[in-house]
Every structure is written in structure tokens, then in C-alpha cells.
């Protein structure tokens, strides 16, 4: 059977989760490979969740928040941005391809964009192949 990547998406409540919802309501197709988990803000996303997802068998992780300047809580997405940059370096040192982690901004109005972003990470991870970290 062809490899179907499993991707965990961490989405902020106010922009990306609503944007993903809009994609659904508007019947825009997006790959089922991305399995969303809602948090209030991208600032809540602890890098621990990302490695936990890899350890539990995810082949990729998507972090998505409001566009810079638009975070419902003002600055949470800047924290996510900085964590993302440092986390990429650490994943690389561990031997996980940093492209397995993707950070993106999707607003509540961007259903189309949500579909594009999920397609992008799915294709990206499909090329990288399975990660096999689940014990």
C-alpha cells in the first residue's frame, strides 16, 4: 500500500481552527492526512507536543496560528515563531528532517489557504517518507 503520511496539526482556536472549519463548511477539499488538535493560541504549543507527536508515530507536524500581528492574544504567534526556529535546529541534530515540522499562518477567513497548506505539508512529508518513531 502506498505510504500515507500521518500529520498532527496544532491549530489556534481563533484563526486557523476557524479557517479549517471554514474550509469544511465551504466544501473545500483538504487532505485527511492532517489530524487537527485545537489549542487556544499557537503560543500554547509546547515543543514537547511536537516531539510527543513524532514519538507517537506522526510523520509530520503542522503548527498553525493567526497571521503575525493578528493573534487574538496579541503576541502568542511570535512565541510560536521563535520556538519553531529553535526546534528545527534541535530536530535536525536529533536526526529528524526539519521539514517534517511546518509553521504557517491561516486566518479565520482563509479556508482556501488552509487547503493549500495541508496539501503542501502532506506532499512534503510524503516525499520524506515514514519516520517510524512509535515503539
Amino acid at each position: 500500500m502506498a505510504f500515507e503520511p500521518k500529520i498532527v496539526g496544532f491549530l489556534c482556536n481563533w484563526c486557523s481552527y476557524t479557517g479549517a472549519d471554514l474550509a469544511g463548511v465551504s466544501r473545500i477539499k483538504w487532505p485527511p492526512n492532517v489530524r487537527p488538535i485545537r489549542v487556544m493560541c499557537s503560543g500554547r504549543i509546547d515543543p514537547t507536543f511536537v516531539v510527543k507527536a513524532f514519538r507517537e508515530g506522526a510523520d509530520g507536524v503542522l503548527v498553525s496560528g493567526c497571521h503575525p500581528g493578528d493573534c487574538h492574544y496579541y503576541q502568542g504567534n511570535y512565541k510560536a515563531l521563535r520556538r519553531y526556529h529553535l526546534l528545527r535546529r534541535v530536530l535536525e541534530q536529533f536526526g529528524i528532517h526539519p521539514d517534517r515540522l511546518m509553521l504557517t499562518w491561516v486566518s479565520a477567513a482563509e479556508g482556501e489557504r488552509w487547503a493549500k497548506v495541508t496539501q503542501e505539508i502532506t506532499e512534503r512529508v510524503r516525499k520524506l517518507g515514514p519516520l517510524h518513531l512509535k515503539d
Binding site: 500521518k6 488538535i37 508515530g57 506522526a58
Partner: peptide
């Protein structure tokens, strides 16, 4: 509402079929 344990459980749940 969004404790580490709750989110860990969600991660384990949605990846139950992985591996």
C-alpha cells in the same frame, strides 16, 4: 481545559493507528 495531559491524550488518541 488544555493541560499537557489532555493534549498528550489527544495526540495518543489521534495517532492510535500509527506504527
Amino acid at each position: 481545559g488544555f493541560t499537557d495531559e489532555q493534549i498528550f491524550a489527544e495526540i495518543e488518541g489521534i495517532l492510535a493507528d500509527a506504527g
